[in-house]
Amino acid sequence: MTELICTVCPRGCHLKVYPEENYRVEGHQCARGEKYGQEEVKNPCRIITSTVCIEGAEHPRCPVKTNAPVPKQMIFNVVKTLNNVCLRSPVKAGDIVVENACGTGVDFITTRSM
């Protein structure tokens, strides 16, 4: 059994998830919470946000994010792919910065036009 705090809404339900019972969830108050509990135990994933170097813009850093959630255990490997990236202004929000980071099928995209 795994205990979690649901992060779907501000209510913060304390969930209990039983993987041995087909991922049964206890303590949730809505369907979204049940789904969260199951996903969080089966395959926790996160959107990763960071910045990359940019030249010729108002600021020296350009914010980026993954365009889909990345498995939690891959986070550190995935952010490392940004280390050698340097963009040149102008960029548009949504431009791809790193394609298919670490074979996850997930791209890093810019989140700001600069």
Binding site: L4, I5, C6, T7, P10, G12, R46
Partner: peptide, 12 residues
């Protein structure tokens, strides 16, 4: 802070 941030910024 928000529960979401406790989980995703500290626990993770």
């Amino acid at each position: 802070g928000l529960a979401r941030n406790i989980v995703q910024c500290l626990h993770d």
